[in-house]
């Protein structure tokens, strides 16, 4: 058990250490209000990470999610302005996301261009395309019922948290217990073996990209309703945060290995660091350095603890 989940254990240790320091030095960190705000602020990372885990599990990667997020945010606002009720506008944004994910997926699965090339291309193209079309203008003048889905703030936050929790728990369960979840692991471990047992690996790859796009749209819509206007530069650097959370959470970049639970721990650790350092009163100038050091320390921990004998695999372990 400990052997199999050593990254998760390392993470839990790291989280506990940081948590203990914070509990002693800045108990205010653990107030309900702060935890709620942190959860909501990191909700987009979490939801997108759920999709990203699947993509990475199949041995692919998607670095265009930040750009997709920006487009879906703007789309939510534009649909709402056209008169769609907010939930429908959100659903439409999911569709837009799924469409973009579909383009990525088709190029990866059937034209067989490596996913990092495809999503690098769509990342720059979508981001610059959006800039070109909007010229940086924000979406303003949203209908009055847009914010909080027309509910109260507390109710809307509860809906958001509920949806994210259901998604996370459902996907964690589904990945373990449903055939649709197992084929993702099978495809990532060995596409050829997967084919031989009757799985269509290309369809699986296509599907996970579409799902990631849809989840990105979902996250963008839920994020958009927290505000009164929608900037056109949202989601800058989101892809790095999401990938960092997944790989720190023990998802193997080569595919086939990793869990939703580990990723959630990764999101939790990374989301604690920034605000945690503010609570500790660290100067903003050194924050990024400390963040980087903590990531390195967390992943180095399990390597140092259990020195695996298979040195030769160092390179294969990373090929995306």
């Amino acid at each position: 058990m400990l052997q199999r989940h050593r990254r998760e254990v390392s993470l839990i240790v790291a989280i506990l250490v940081i948590g203990a320091v914070l509990a002693v030095v800045a108990p205010g960190f653990f107030t309900f209000a702060n935890q709620r705000d942190l959860m909501l602020a990191n909700m987009p990372v979490l939801i997108v990470a759920l999709g990203m885990v699947l993509v990475i599990l199949t041995g692919q990667i998607d670095i265009s999610v930040g750009s997709q997020f920006a487009i879906c945010s703007v789309a939510t606002g534009v649909f709402a302005r056209m008169g769609l009720p907010t939930p429908l506008a959100g659903a439409a944004a999911c569709l837009v996301g799924a469409l973009m994910g579909g383009v990525n997926g088709a190029l990866v699965a059937w034209v067989r261009i490596p996913s990092i090339v495809v999503t690098l291309a769509t990342m720059v193209a979508l981001r610059d395309g959006l800039r070109w079309v909007t010229q940086g203008a924000w979406v303003q003048g949203l209908p009055p019922g847009f914010q909080w889905f027309g509910q109260s703030q507390a109710a809307s936050e509860l809906i958001t948290a509920g949806c994210a929790a259901v998604l996370a728990v459902g996907m964690n369960w589904g990945l373990r217990n449903l055939a649709a979840g197992r084929v993702v692991y099978a495809t990532g471990s060995s596409p050829n073996a997967a084919r031989l047992v009757g799985i269509n690996p290309r369809l699986v790859v296509f599907a996970v990209f579409v799902l990631t796009g849809a989840l990105t749209g979902f996250a963008a819509a839920f994020n958009a309703v927290r505000f009164l206007q929608i900037p056109s530069n949202a989601g800058m650097g989101l892809e790095l945060k999401v990938i960092a959370a997944a790989v720190v959470g023990g998802v193997a970049i080569a595919g086939g290995r990793g869990t939703i639970a580990g990723t959630l721990l990764g999101v939790l650790l990374l989301s604690m660091i920034g605000p945690g350092l503010t609570f500790l009163g660290l100067s903003a100038y050194w924050e990024r350095a400390v963040e980087g050091a903590i990531i390195l320390a967390a992943v180095a921990m399990d390597a140092v603890r259990v020195r695996s004998g298979i040195h030769a695999d160092i390179v294969s372990a990373q090929a995306a």
Partner: peptide, 9 residues
């Protein structure tokens, strides 16, 4: 990814 943050920081 970690050293990207570390060095820039």
């Amino acid at each position: 990814l970690g050293s990207l943050s570390l060095f820039r920081g």
